[in-house]
């Protein structure tokens, strides 16, 4: 590793893995040399990618063995197709069998529409595999701060993780801004209003309402440090966990359900100057958030 700060947002999937795991510890499974490309993109005269937009393998983080996956947001928007999804499913099933923690670097627009049915089922399979691994005590840590954000079914998968680490760029949402606007009109959501997108779906808002656990700067080393800490947290997932999540999600609706904008919610949290949040540097924001935010307290 060098001392030069590396942007997580700008990095590709392989660079993110290289920044996360210990040097020379990474071994890829079903790598590009296997040429396991999408069997479906050719129908649309679209070029395939040798890894189908996801890198999966094993490595260590500060000496702790982990399984790791990273989506490539530049290829097909990091979307889940048949092969892409199956690689993550296989990794998670191995995690359960081995009792080994998993780190997933999300960067996805959701289901890949050219193979939508295969991608949709893949997401359901992945969520099931995460829950089954977590019930056996496996940690599944999600990292979100890429170009494509974490949308659609990716957002639902993220919601199954034990810990979520986000940067400001890490947007988490089900329906993307463009799709809401297309279906419900610009009055419902103006997707070109980037400030609205960031404060509704971005990492700062998700951190403040408890949708994400750890806020980091757009810095690969910060993601690695936060992942290291997350892997040291207790791995608990049972009926009590979901009862606590039920309670916190009910409380969120009760507290904020009538509010129409993130700044109203931030104000209700006790933040005096919510309009200053979007421009606030990461460390200042993290300090403020620690004081005012709704923490999920591992109830996820």
């Amino acid at each position: 590793m060098s001392n030069i700060r590396q942007s997580w947002y700008e990095a590709g999937a392989r660079e993110r893995i290289a920044a996360l795991v210990d040097p020379r510890s990474f071994a890829e499974f079903v790598g590009p040399e296997c040429r396991e490309t999408s069997p479906h993109l050719g129908i649309f005269n679209l070029p395939a990618q040798f890894d189908d937009g996801i890198v999966v393998g094993s490595g260590s983080i500060n000496g702790t063995p982990v399984l790791v996956a990273a989506q490539e947001g530049r290829f097909m928007g990091g979307a889940f197709g048949e092969v892409h999804g199956a690689k993550l499913t296989g990794l998670l099933r191995a995690a359960k069998a081995l009792g080994r923690d998993v780190v997933i670097a999300f960067d996805t627009g959701g289901v890949r529409l050219q193979e939508a049915n295969a991608g949709e089922i893949a997401i359901a399979e992945i969520m099931r595999a995460i829950v089954e691994a977590r019930l056996d005590g496996v940690r599944v840590v999600g990292l979100i701060g890429g170009r494509a954000g974490c949308y659609g079914g990716g957002g639902l998968i993220a919601g199954c993780c034990s810990t979520l680490i986000v940067s400001e760029q890490g947007r988490i949402s089900v329906t993307g801004p463009e799709v809401i606007e297309t279906n419900k009109g610009v009055e419902e959501f103006d997707s070109r209003d980037r400030a609205l997108v960031w404060r509704t779906m971005g990492g700062k808002h998700r951190t403040l309402i408890g949708g994400a656990d750890v806020f980091v700067d757009d810095d690969a080393a910060a993601f690695r440090a936060a992942a290291t800490a997350a892997l040291a947290r207790p791995a608990k997932f049972d009926a009590a966990t979901l009862a606590a999540e039920q309670a916190r999600l009910e409380r969120r609706i009760a507290r904020f359900g009538d509010m129409s904008d993130a700044t109203d919610i931030w104000h209700a949290l006790g933040i005096n100057d919510p309009k200053a949040i979007p421009d606030m540097p990461a460390d200042a924001f993290a300090t403020l958030a620690a004081q005012y935010r709704e923490s999920a307290d591992d109830a996820r």
Partner: peptide, 13 residues
């Protein structure tokens, strides 16, 4: 989406 629909749907699953 403001209130975190992804969490609610994941929680149901």
């Amino acid at each position: 989406e403001l209130l975190g629909l992804s969490e609610y749907l994941a929680h149901l699953a």
